[in-house]
Design a protein around this nucleic acid. Structure first.
Lengths: 186, 186
DNA sequence: TCGTCCATGTAACGCGTTACATGATTTG
DNA sequence: CAAATCATGTAACGCGTTACATGGACGA
């Protein structure tokens, strides 16, 4: 039945609009100019996504009166939109997020602090670190078992993934350290 | 006009079937059991993709006669399929591949050696290393310019990406070293 | 014979992409 | 005034996902 769940692009838009109301055009610019997520900056993806969010009453648009006849619709979250955003960010991290949805994980993290605060971010980092610390050796184990049978380039491709997770793990430890201090100093 | 380009899933299937003819079911199993690419292992994605490749005459299927009434169609590349695979693998790497399509880059690399050989793999690695070496400091520069204005968690999310690229860069140097030796020893 | 695995498929659905289209406003 | 930029949209298209469906083979 798949009750029309919000897509990753939709959640990214919610997160951005939570920080600051903006027009569709601003969001396009953001996707085009910043190294964010890898979302398309084409109008054919963003405007329909925004319209869907509006139809679900997660966003509300106000025509900006100041700028003459050049219509510019500033979008902002409704209370329901904020609830949706919060519940996405607040959902517990699971192994499958680490294995297959790292991009979403980092997107969530990028919004976490400003929406749910430092304590929630700290909890998130704890879980993330633990999951990475568990998954990284699993991949290495897979490599030890199957690596010998694989062509050199395939084995190296796997090693590249492992190196990536190692980097994420080290980063998580670093971030955990920073946030522990930040929370302690309040 | 977008003349029906082969999709990433399609190319992954071509690469796998180049190594060894297989049935759709085998490919599903592979996606389900190995940490590959993150493709869905559902029949609704794989069988249609295989059918499309067959319609484009890139694949050919043979009913396996050995196994009674249990039909099992072994798929293998046609010459056109092999050409398609080769031209994908042989295409020059560009910056946009690094920025937005790292997943595809690693998939290509995984197939490279067995399809195009060690010399081509070595060239690929040279380019990859150069592109990463150029992009990584660019991201760091972006962080230096905009980092101070960003919320801590957003900045850290960016740092995570940077750490990932640093890991890829180190990995590329490692792989380059291995392949240089491999090519030299022939 | 009952459940589990093998093996292949289809149908409905929503989404992202590319390409196209429109008009207002600023800049040179 | 021409060109670039601002700003918003629509249409066609293919693809991936989820869910559903079918039937043979095999072990307990």
């Amino acid at each position: 039945m798949a009750q029309a769940n919000t897509t990753l692009l939709g959640r990214a838009l919610l997160g951005l609009l939570h920080q600051k109301p903006a027009a569709g055009y601003d969001l396009r610019k953001l996707f085009a100019e910043t190294p964010m997520g890898g979302f398309s900056d084409s109008p054919g993806s963003i405007y329909p996504a925004l319209r869907r969010l509006e139809e679900k009453r997660l966003l509300r648009g106000h025509l900006q009166p100041s700028s003459g006849l050049r219509r510019r619709r500033l979008l902002s979250l409704t209370p329901a939109g904020e609830r949706e955003l919060r519940s996405w960010l607040d959902a517990p991290l699971e192994t499958v997020d680490i294995v297959a949805r790292m991009k979403e994980v980092m997107l969530r993290f990028a919004f976490l602090d400003s929406v749910l605060g430092a304590e929630a971010t700290l909890r998130f980092l704890h879980t993330l670190h633990a999951l990475l610390a568990a998954y990284h050796p699993e991949l290495k184990h897979y490599l030890r078992r199957h690596g010998a049978l694989m062509p050199l380039s395939a084995r190296l491709a796997l090693e590249s993934g492992i190196a990536g997770y190692a980097a994420q793990l080290a980063w998580a430890a670093h971030a955990l350290h920073l946030y522990t201090r930040k929370v302690a100093s309040t």
